[in-house]
Design a protein around this nucleic acid. Structure first.
Length: 423
RNA sequence: GUGGGCGUAGCUCAGCUUGGCUAGAGCACUUGGCUGUGGCCCAAGGUGUCGGGGGUUCAAAUCCCCUCGCCCACCCCA
């Protein structure tokens, strides 16, 4: 085979695409009915948007971005995530003027140059939400409640919402320092990865699964103990409101997010069906990002869902492929073929059927093989137009469902007759 | 970047251990049996770089070396 798709970038084939369309349309319906509006930002951004936005020491920025120079030596990057571009757009177009609290959503591909594995590819798709313009804990609650509802709308069950708070910027800093101090004389007890993490992102040592590290972390300082009163209250408010709404969550004190911009509330949705990449979605607050990127100070919360991972989690009890109402027009001869085209147009115009699909045969296949393909396409009705029918200005309409019969009607009456059979 | 597994028909795979007939099966696809009627049944239809390259051998899908690709896991993340 000469050409194949680029590593980690997969085709979504015709036989699978319905599920993607189904999930996307459910998401749009769900989110728009709650006042979210879609935003579409470009695939490419100036590299600096991500360095500033995600954090220059994060793994995403240091080793996972598709970055290249254009013809004028500008450094461009294919977006590895959706939040930084949206914040860029928010500032660039003063979107805060639309309304003090802006609810945005996006659906689209993201790109990270990682080694592919189950639930992880180099081009993957996210559905994400950003609420910009509020520091209130109720924004967090609204977003989480909406997220829970969206997952249910997808038909998902068995997922777990993990919740934590990192505290505000200065809390985070203080906590990072005290962790480093705590670990200063324990470096030798940690695994190789964690020794690295101490300098780069100490918080990650908290969720290392290695026995030796978990041991060493016993007695480590707690995030909650290092949190300022305001952040502690914020977190309490989020938790009690979620409980009041009946939304189940697990408080997970070692939950840490890898992107630098997260502050205060952070969360992650995991699903057991996935394998080791078990997060189907994650998000949190990013109260400093907008200011850090050059905008006015504004609070914000958001999350992103990995569509590929949602689909993996859905395997087994996936949504049913929607039923199509297929009408197949079988023709014999050139004149009939033209007439068939006209009929298919009048059927599409005249029949107000949901999911109506009118198929026509292209070539000069025998009636037998046309009937076969009609059957394979699950046609409910076949309209046969041959020489006899042309001569008499009539049509044969066959009901393909088990026990269905076949009638001959005048050409002008097709729409009516098909409606009688199908409706 | 680091481990491990796997590459034979469009798909799922057998054959490889112990080298040897024209490299197979099921599914799918096309056509026909039924010259204008689907599903079931029957029949016929394959120029497959046996992932690629090199080596060993009279002989390689099969053994050896290299390489590429895919998958799973680490790392990281949605």
């Amino acid at each position: 085979m000469k050409y194949k798709s680029v590593k980690g970038m997969d085709d979504i084939l015709p036989q699978d695409v319905w599920l993607w369309q189904e999930l996307e349309s459910r998401a749009r319906k769900e989110l728009e009915s709650s006042g979210y509006v879609e935003i579409r930002t470009p695939i490419l951004e100036e590299t600096a948007v991500f360095i500033r936005g995600i954090g220059e020491t994060t793994d995403i920025v240091t080793k996972e971005m598709f970055t290249f120079s254009d013809r004028k030596e500008r450094s461009l990057t294919m977006r590895p995530e959706g939040t930084a571009p949206i914040v860029r757009s928010y500032i660039e177009h003063s979107l805060g003027n639309i309304s003090p609290v802006l609810r945005l959503y996006y659906i689209g591909p993201m790109f990270r140059a990682e080694r592919p594995q189950k639930g992880r590819s180099r081009q993957f798709h996210q559905i994400g939400v950003e609420v910009i313009g509020s520091f209130s804990p109720y924004a967090d609650v609204e977003v989480l409640a909406q997220l829970d509802k969206l997952l249910k709308a997808f038909g998902l069950s068995g997922y777990v919402i993990k919740l934590n708070s990192l505290g505000c910027k200065s809390d985070k800093l203080k906590f990072t320092e005290s962790l480093k101090q705590y670990l200063a004389d324990k470096i030798n007890l940690l695994c190789e990865d964690c020794r690295n993490r101490v300098g780069k992102n100490v918080l990650r040592v908290l969720d290392c699964k290695k026995e030796s590290c978990t041991q060493a972390m016993r007695g480590a300082p707690n995030i909650l103990d290092n949190m300022c009163l305001k952040c502690a209250r914020h977190f309490e408010e989020v938790k009690s409101s979620l409980k009041a709404l009946g939304i189940n969550f697990q408080e997970t004190k070692n939950l840490v997010r890898g992107l630098d911009y997260y502050t205060a509330t952070v969360f992650e949705i995991t699903h057991p069906a996935l394998g080791t990449q078990d997060a189907i979605g994650a998000g949190g607050r990013y109260d400093n990002l907008i200011k850090d990127m050059g905008g006015e100070c504004a609070g914000a919360v958001g999350y992103a869902l990995g569509l590929e991972r949602i689909i993996l989690a859905l395997k087994g009890h996936a949504a049913r492929k929607p039923d199509r109402n297929v009408i197949y027009i079988a023709t014999l001869g050139d004149a009939a073929r033209l007439e068939g085209l006209k009929i298919s147009e009048s059927l599409k115009d005249g029949l107000a059927l949901p999911n109506l699909v009118v198929l026509r045969d292209m070539g000069e296949a025998s009636l037998k093989s046309q009937m076969r393909s009609a059957d394979r396409q699950n046609a409910k009705v076949v309209i046969i137009l041959g020489e006899d029918e042309m001569k008499e200005k009539k049509l044969t309409i066959k009901d393909m469902r088990p026990g269905g019969s076949q009638v001959s009607v005048a050409a002008e009456l097709v729409v009516e007759e098909v409606r009688r059979i199908l409706c």
